[in-house]
Simulated assay, not measured.
Amino acid sequence: MSDQRAYTLTGPDGRSYSSPVKGTWGGHRGNRIYGRMDCPAALRAIAKGVYVKNRVFFVDESTAIVAGYRPCWSCCRDKYQAWKAAKGKDESCRKDL
């Protein structure tokens, strides 16, 4: 009998895979948001039972970003503000085209 636990993580391509390593970041598949495992907003949603079926996990933050997820406003405000500012710059560049 194996004591090795397998965790289901989301890779940079957005696909799930089995890993012996526990994810360090969580996310919501539908909203494409990632955040800390102790995020107060995510924990409230989980307690209500509305978040669990769309919950995903990432081995690290860079994997979440490459997979197309954005930072959570609640637990990653600095990163969210930087993402929002970069998004605004991208949209203003598109208007010039």
Rank of each mutant, 00 (worst) to 15 (best):
M1A: 15
M1I: 11
M1E: 15
S2C: 14
D3V: 07
D3R: 15
Q4C: 12
Q4Y: 14
R5F: 12
R5E: 15
A6K: 15
Y7M: 04
Y7S: 08
T8V: 15
L9S: 05
L9K: 01
L9V: 05
T10E: 03
T10H: 00
G11R: 05
G11W: 01
G11V: 05
P12V: 10
P12T: 12
P12N: 09
G14W: 09
G14P: 02
G14F: 09
R15H: 08
R15D: 07
R15C: 01
S16R: 10
Y17E: 00
Y17L: 04
S18E: 09
S18G: 07
S18D: 10
S18P: 01
S18V: 00
S19A: 10
S19P: 08
P20C: 02
P20K: 07
P20G: 08
P20W: 01
V21H: 03
K22F: 01
K22I: 00
K22D: 01
G23D: 06
T24L: 00
G26N: 02
G27D: 01
H28K: 08
H28F: 06
H28I: 00
R29Y: 04
G30A: 12
G30P: 03
G30I: 00
N31T: 08
R32I: 00
R32L: 11
I33T: 13
I33Y: 11
Y34Q: 06
R36T: 12
R36P: 08
M37V: 13
D38P: 03
D38K: 05
P40H: 12
P40G: 14
A41T: 05
A45R: 06
A45D: 08
A45V: 07
A45M: 14
A45P: 02
A47Q: 09
A47D: 09
K48D: 14
K48A: 15
K48W: 09
K48M: 13
V50L: 05
K53P: 11
K53Q: 12
K53G: 05
K53R: 14
R55H: 14
R55Y: 07
V56E: 10
F58T: 02
F58H: 02
V59C: 04
V59S: 13
D60G: 02
E61R: 13
S62R: 14
S62D: 14
T63N: 06
I65L: 05
V66L: 09
V66G: 00
A67G: 04
A67W: 02
Y69W: 10
Y69T: 05
R70P: 02
R70W: 06
P71C: 08
P71I: 03
C72S: 09
C72D: 06
C72N: 02
C72V: 09
W73G: 12
W73S: 11
W73Y: 10
S74F: 07
S74E: 11
S74G: 12
C75F: 10
C75L: 11
C76G: 08
R77K: 12
D78P: 07
K79L: 11
K79T: 10
Y80G: 04
Y80K: 05
Q81W: 02
Q81P: 04
Q81D: 13
A82K: 08
W83Y: 13
K84L: 12
A86T: 06
A86K: 14
A86G: 15
K87G: 13
K87Y: 13
K87C: 04
G88K: 10
G88Y: 01
K89M: 13
K89P: 05
K89I: 09
D90L: 12
E91R: 14
E91Y: 08
E91L: 14
S92K: 13
C93G: 11
K95Q: 11
K95V: 12
K95W: 09
D96H: 12
